[in-house]
Structure formats: structure tokens, C-alpha cells
């Protein structure tokens, strides 16, 4: 029973961090893609969307190659900071963040594009600087659209399996998240444990989706 709660706690921790990272990067990239005019904009959008359609195992392999100690970046992380991401919960966070990120930046871009540019101009004429315009007008008006994406990203990060298993493995109490624990339980023939894990995961996902539905962009205009 303790193992189940440990897996739940770990899943929430990993998904929470992955969502936070996706939120910050997704808002920044979504804004850049919505307002920036630069060559290669569509290509960048396509590349960043890839994690949504690629098999998670392929993503996991990419991350292993990038972060592993045999890669330049992985070796630099280890030698300079003593950081090793492979087979750690932080590695699982990165895997989940990469998978969840497109679910944030896509709706964020759409939400920023839907903000009426005239409102931003009105704010400028009233003397508010660019950063103030962003935090006082643009972001609040795009917020509901972004939050709907963030909740989907959280649900996706919670269910992450393939890339996480490749990068972080399945160490009970350390990197074994709910979805991986389900797999291990079924493999070991522990049906009771599997049932409970599946129920918990389903309930969590239903709750998140209900919340996301309440924040759907269509409801903004009526408020």
C-alpha cells in the first residue's frame, strides 16, 4: 500500500514540475510565435509540435542520447555541476516536460493571437510600458486559453510512460511513477495493486479534464 502512495506522490511531483516548466516555456514560446515575425517561424512551430506525434520511446531515446554521460551536453552537466539526470526523478521531469510542452504552447499561441491588438495599443497610449502591457492586458486576456492547455499538459505528464521509462527507468520509490507502477504490477501478476493504481489514475485524469472543460476558451466571451 505504501508503494502505491509513493508512486502517486512521485507522479504528482513529476507532473507538477513538468507542468510548471511547460507553462513558463510554453507561454514564452507561444507569445514569440504569435507576435514574432521571423524566418523559420513555421518550421520552429513544427519542430516543437513533434513530441505530440512522435512515439514516446523515440523521444526517450533522443533524451538519453542528449543527456547521457556519453554525450557532450551530458558530460558537461556531470563534470561541471555533478548533475546526472539519467535514472533520476529529475530526468523523469524533463521527459514529461518535453511531452507535455506542445500541449501548452499550441493553445498559448492561439490565445495570444486572439487578443485584440487594439487593446494593447490603448494601454500604450495610456502610458503603460511594454512589459506592463503584457502582464496587465495580453496575459490576463489569454490566461483562460493557456490554463486549459496547462491542465491537459498536467494530465499528459501524469500519464507519461514511454519516454519516462527510457530516461528514468523504474526504480520503486525513486522513479517509478503511477503509470509505470501499473505496468510493473501487471507484469508481476499483482492484479489488486494494478486495479487500485488504474482507478486512482483514472479518477485524477477525469478531475483534470473536468477542470479543463470549465476553462475552455469558448466561455471567455460570455463572461
Amino acid at each position: 500500500m505504501d508503494a502505491i502512495w509513493a508512486a502517486l506522490a512521485l507522479s504528482l511531483k513529476v507532473a507538477g514540475w513538468a507542468t510548471a516548466i511547460s507553462l513558463v516555456l510554453g507561454v514564452a514560446v507561444g507569445y514569440l510565435l504569435a507576435r514574432g515575425r521571423f524566418p523559420g517561424r513555421d518550421l520552429l512551430d513544427t519542430l516543437l509540435t513533434l513530441p505530440m506525434v512522435m512515439p514516446p520511446t523515440v523521444l526517450g531515446y533522443y533524451l538519453l542520447v542528449l543527456l547521457g554521460r556519453r554525450s557532450t551536453f551530458g558530460a558537461w552537466l556531470h563534470d561541471s555541476f555533478g548533475i546526472n539526470l539519467i535514472f533520476t526523478w529529475q530526468g523523469a521531469v524533463i521527459a514529461a516536460a518535453v511531452v507535455a510542452f506542445p500541449l501548452v504552447f499550441k493553445p498559448a499561441r492561439a490565445a495570444f493571437e486572439a487578443v485584440d491588438g487594439q487593446l494593447e495599443q490603448a494601454a500604450r497610449v495610456l502610458g503603460v510600458r511594454e512589459l506592463g502591457v503584457f502582464f496587465r492586458v495580453t496575459l490576463p486576456l489569454a490566461w483562460r486559453g493557456i490554463m486549459a492547455g496547462v491542465l491537459l499538459a498536467f494530465a499528459r505528464a501524469l500519464g507519461e510512460f514511454g519516454a519516462t521509462l527510457m530516461v528514468a527507468g523504474s526504480i520503486p520509490g525513486k522513479t517509478q511513477t503511477l503509470s509505470i507502477a501499473v505496468y510493473e504490477a501487471v507484469q508481476a501478476g499483482q492484479d489488486d495493486t494494478a486495479n487500485l493504481l488504474v482507478l486512482i489514475t483514472s479518477a485524477l485524469c477525469i478531475g483534470v479534464l473536468l477542470l479543463a472543460g470549465r476553462l475552455a476558451p469558448g466561455r471567455i466571451a460570455n463572461r
Binding site: L119, A123, G127, L141
Partner: peptide
């Protein structure tokens, strides 16, 4: 009119009086 739809009348009128990052 380009009124800020997320701010009430009072906040809209006061908008330009605050120059910082908060409404």
C-alpha cells in the same frame, strides 16, 4: 472604445494612473 474587458469600470478609468506591472 477598446475598454479592457477583464477590468471593471473603476479599473479601466484608473488604468493609466498606474504605470507598473499590476492593474
Amino acid at each position: 472604445y477598446a475598454l479592457f474587458p477583464h477590468l471593471n469600470v473603476r479599473q479601466n478609468i484608473a488604468f493609466g494612473l498606474r504605470r507598473g506591472l499590476l492593474n
